[in-house]
Write a protein that binds this DNA or RNA. Structure first.
Lengths: 204, 204
DNA sequence: GTCTATACGGTGATAGAC
DNA sequence: GTCTATCACCGTATAGAC
């Protein structure tokens, strides 16, 4: 009974630390949040953090993984549950407003990336995460276009890259200027669809 | 003769500090560059920084001002010296490749913004700089469109906001994944022009 | 008034006790 | 594995030299 408690308790400690760091990083930022604060808020000492994560950077990567999974699932849910093309755009618009409009997300994402850009190995970690996200977004786009009987005006991955870049740029600027509207990205998506051509069943 | 030396020397010190900080911030990042290093590299003590700038944040804002002016001028030059529409797009493409492709710029811009997002007053400073940049870019767009006899498919300022966001997003992702191509922003600009309509001389 | 010298609180990281 | 003690370093602040 107590045999698996060790590993379980370790995982629980790790999970609680990530969860606490997630909340604090989003609220106050990555650099402004000290490991001492994270540990104290989670009910541990700073040493507990270092027994679970080699560096603050690794804790940050773990937080980003949770964040990415969470947002990717909510985006997929928002789009996949709609039926008509307009409903899907509306679902995307709602998701964009709630998520890209969320000041904390974009800010945390880029603060971490830039603050760790000289840390060895981190760039590769972030690059692989970006490719994963872009591929997933591209698949979603392509699938949606196919469902609607459309052919995108450019490779789905390129469209995904541009939408992601636009989302990052808009979300980031909103971090210090909340008046900036997020609607631009919805316009872009709409324009992407308008520039799409109907699928030719003959294949050519 | 030595009467103006005081103010001049002060201005020179300030200029040299900004210049040194510019170089180090771009190369190593904002957080990774200590004020001690900036001062030493410029040939001063750390206190000299403090006598010219109240905080590290203010030094960062001064660096950003120099950076913005520099890039805005180079963009205007790249676009305005061209004659034909295609030459202007080519000029923009070259500028985008050299500047948005520059890893340091986007990274510094957003690292500073996010790392200081809780510092009182900084958000307003950055927001006003963003509005200035957006307005200038919008004017440039509108002027170019008019010269080419085109009407943009959206307000010039909205187009500028989207292009700026896209540039930030692309430049930032290139900071940790240099393989990502910058061509997306040129495609966007081209698409913007393609969706423009000829000016109707009748006014309606 | 501008710069140097020095000090303070707090940070990420490390070593060793339990 | 977690905690305490400790380190080097950072941004900030002050006192004093010139």
């Amino acid at each position: 009974m107590a045999r698996i408690t060790r590993k379980e308790s370790h995982a629980q400690t790790r999970e609680r630390l990530v969860e606490t760091a997630y909340r604090l990083f989003m609220a106050d930022g990555y650099n402004a949040t000290s490991l001492d604060k994270v540990a104290a808020e989670a009910g541990f000492s700073k040493g507990a953090v270092y027994s679970n994560f080699a560096t603050k950077t690794e804790l940050g990567l773990a937080v980003l993984d949770v964040l990415h999974l969470e947002r990717a699932m909510s985006l997929a849910a928002a789009v996949l549950e709609a039926e008509t093309a307009e409903d899907r755009i509306a679902g995307f618009a709602k998701w964009a407003d709630e998520n890209i409009g969320d000041v904390g997300w974009g800010a945390l994402e880029v603060e971490f990336a830039t603050s760790n850009r000289n840390v060895p190995g981190v760039n590769n970690e972030l690059a692989s995460r970006r490719r994963l996200l872009t591929a997933a977004l591209g698949d979603l786009l392509e699938q949606q276009a196919t469902d609607l009987g459309l052919v995108l005006p450019m490779p789905a991955e390129d469209a995904a890259t541009q939408l992601l870049a636009l989302g990052i740029g808009l979300g980031l600027q909103r971090a210090f200027d909340p008046e900036l509207p997020v609607t631009g990205i919805v316009d872009q998506l709409r324009s992407l669809l308008e520039r799409s051509t109907p699928i030719d069943p003959s294949g050519r």
